[in-house]
Design a binder for these strands. Structure first.
Length: 651
DNA sequence: GCTTTGACACTTTTT
DNA sequence: GTGTCAAAGC
């Protein structure tokens, strides 16, 4: 089968390489996705059994796109290659080999929110226990969410708690380090007791089990002939270890770009890319340097951003496309004006025959897209937001799912507490007691029902709901429909904007129709969260909705017209990044954002203060307004306000 | 002793 | 919009 794209010699060499492991260094827009797709396609054409090919992608979206495109190209094949994220692959492997993962059979995958809730309990318990024994009780322990991040980072980089703390928390006392370590141990034991699997467990448990068990190792060593990995610069040491167990004899084929490494906060290890040829025997390094995505004007701006760095990125991309329009840089008085202008600009272009899928609005933080969302709702422009708070993370949806989780895994303390607390008169204390009593019943449903009949007599709804979940385990959508009717009178009292939240419950029930068990439903949406705005649209509506997306989620995507919003000081680099390495990563984030645009790039800023900055921090766009050769600058701050602020500042 | 209520702060990026 | 704390209420 021939491709409809014509490949350049760099690409066709990369695609047809034989009898070697390969690392393809592919600059932004040089056809990274295309290379992977064409490579798999080439292998299929050469008669490789699709089941012997594994593709590990960075997001589920990338995997889906790959599968879709291969299906149309190779419609005669009755099976397709396996493609998914590392987490997806490891979890599926755990689920399909229950014999080797006994402990995981009843386990449930928990998301960040649950990790934080669990860590909060651990932090409290350990500190209460610790404090009387210290001199003044003043231990300076990071906040719960920071602890979750810390532990995840330590585990993803495969370092020990103490060695990490002594290196990066130099001011900590011995007691403080000990307390943090105790909290982490407590977290581990609670997690195991309650049969939770966090994101890191999925990778680590799989990697460890394969390392320890020769029989299992053999199964995976023999499973594939070709393993392909996208975005290798964003993989961590654990993921590398997993790869080592899947390849040789299988060939390893990796694609990546060091200038697009933006996940080091999650433990991504650039060495996986940089040391590739040294680590992997019989391997070759190839480069793709020609950009097929963007106009030269857009690339020039991207090059300018990287050139400001003291790092040597070696990334002067050249475009095949003509110069094109200069990127725009526009200053607005505030976020509302910014949002209104963007919506107006998009509507104008739509009236001029543009398609809504030609646009992408990029944001550094999920937070800063809120004003725009409000304006889009007001002006009735359909949109979907990718990234940000997922539907499953909103309070009222958690209430609903807590019941299902508790019923299926009665050891799930967090869920019992959450769910029982929706009833008036039951708070955390009573709920915790109940959950401990339930645990003693050891999954015996009759005993659990008997307990609630006795101890919670005035709440007959509890037993009714539990029985319903147990009865409809195989039909989650039907079950949720029934539960919603039962619980709505109770839960609606808890929220003053119930009307808006009610829709999300219906959405959950609709999404569940695609699954045959609550566990698989929860797993699917924990590993691949959807926002309410995206979930509420049908597949067809999704195609006709404006995409708002965090830059981190936008990796690998492109659009004709890109808006990078809220780009004022504090966004690039983000004000929370402090170290040199963090700031450098922020530069790459901006680089990734700019290189998403194919034809038109509009960078907008909205802030009360502009121009010369008083802060000593580096701001990547500080001098851009004056660079006529790079951007077309427009100032839309109205004069009255400018005067007002000038006076205000000198007062 | 436990739950409810109201006032307040804070809001990076993700599997 | 969610988390946290203290004080009021049962």
């Amino acid at each position: 089968m021939t491709s409809k794209f014509s490949l350049n010699h760099q690409q066709s060499k990369a695609i047809k390489i034989e009898n070697t492991n390969a690392l393809v260094l592919a600059g932004a827009g040089s056809g990274k996705t295309l290379t992977i797709i064409e490579r798999v396609s080439y292998l299929l054409d050469r008669g490789v059994n699709p089941k012997r090919i594994l593709v590990l992608t960075f997001t589920r979206r990338a995997a889906q796109e790959l599968i879709d495109r291969l299906r149309t190209r190779h419609s005669h094949l009755d099976s397709m290659v396996l493609a998914g994220t590392f987490h997806r692959f490891c979890l599926s492997s755990i689920r399909s080999h229950p014999h080797f993962f006994q402990r995981h059979v009843k386990a449930i995958v928990i998301d960040r929110g649950d990790q934080v809730s669990l860590m909060k309990l651990c932090r409290k318990e350990v500190l209460e226990h610790h404090e009387p024994s210290t001199f003044d009780g003043e231990l300076d322990i990071p906040k719960t969410s920071a602890l979750v991040e810390l532990l995840s980072y330590i585990r993803s980089t495969d370092t020990s708690v103490f060695s990490y703390l002594t290196k990066f928390y130099k001011d900590n006392t011995q007691q403080e380090n000990q307390a943090i370590n105790d909290i982490f141990n407590q977290y581990k034991s609670k997690k195991e007791n309650q049969r939770y699997l966090d994101f890191d467990d999925i990778l680590i448990d799989f990697a460890n089990r394969v390392a320890k068990d020769k029989e299992l190792a053999q199964i995976f060593k023999k499973a594939y002939d070709h393993v392909l990995v996208d975005e290798i610069q964003d993989t961590n040491v654990i993921q590398w270890r997993i790869l080592e167990n899947l390849v040789n004899p299988a060939w390893l084929y990796c694609v990546g770009d060091d200038a697009q490494s933006i996940y080091s906060f999650r433990g991504a290890n650039l060495a996986n890319l940089q040391e590739f040829t040294r680590r992997v025997k019989n391997s070759e390094k190839l480069k793709l340097t020609i950009n097929y995505r963007s106009t030269q004007s857009i690339l020039s701006l991207a090059n300018y951003i990287l050139a400001q760095s003291s790092w040597d990125y070696d990334k002067e991309l050249t475009a095949v496309h003509p110069l094109g329009e200069k990127p725009k840089l526009i200053d607005f008085q505030n976020a509302t004006q910014e949002a209104e202008w963007i919506v107006g600009d998009i509507k104008g272009k739509l009236a001029n025959n543009a398609k809504i899928k030609d646009f992408m609005v990029l944001t550094r933080t999920a937070w800063s897209v809120r004003t725009l969302e409000a304006i889009l709702v007001e002006k009735k422009v359909p949109y979907k937001f990718v990234g940000g708070t997922s539907l499953l993370n909103s309070a009222h949806v958690k209430d609903l799912l807590a019941l299902c989780r508790a019923a299926i895994n009665p050891n799930d303390e967090l869920s019992w507490v959450r769910w029982l607390s929706i009833f008036p008169g039951i708070g955390p204390k009573k709920a915790l007691l109940a959950s401990q009593a339930v645990r003693k019943a050891e999954d015996d449903t009759d005993k659990i029902l008997a307990y609630f009949d006795k101890a919670f007599k005035q709440y007959p709804l509890i037993g009714t709901c539990l029985k319903l979940v147990w009865a409809y385990q195989k039909d989650p959508a039907d079950m949720l429909d029934k539960i919603i009717i039962l619980l709505e009178p109770e839960v609606s009292k808890l929220y003053d904007n119930w009307h808006a939240r009610k829709n999300d419950w219906k959405l959950i029930a609709t999404l569940a129709t695609r699954h045959d068990s609550i566990t698989s439903f929860i797993e699917a949406y924990t590993l691949d969260p959807v926002t309410s705005s995206a979930a509420s649209l049908s597949d067809n509506e999704n195609k006709n909705a404006l995409t708002l997306i965090t830059i981190h989620s936008a990796k690998g995507l492109e659009a004709k017209v890109c808006y990078i919003i809220q780009s004022q000081e504090g966004s690039f680099p983000h004000s929370r990044s402090t170290t040199k390495e963090e700031i450098e990563e922020e530069r790459r984030v901006l680089y990734v954002a700019i290189t998403r645009a194919k034809e038109e790039l509009i960078i907008t800023r909205a802030s009360n203060f502009h121009g010369e900055s008083f802060s000593q921090r580096e701001y990547f766009l500080a001098k851009l307004a004056k660079k006529d050769e790079l951007v077309d600058y427009q100032n839309k701050i109205n004069l009255f306000c400018k005067d007002y602020f000038r006076n205000f500042r000198y007062r």
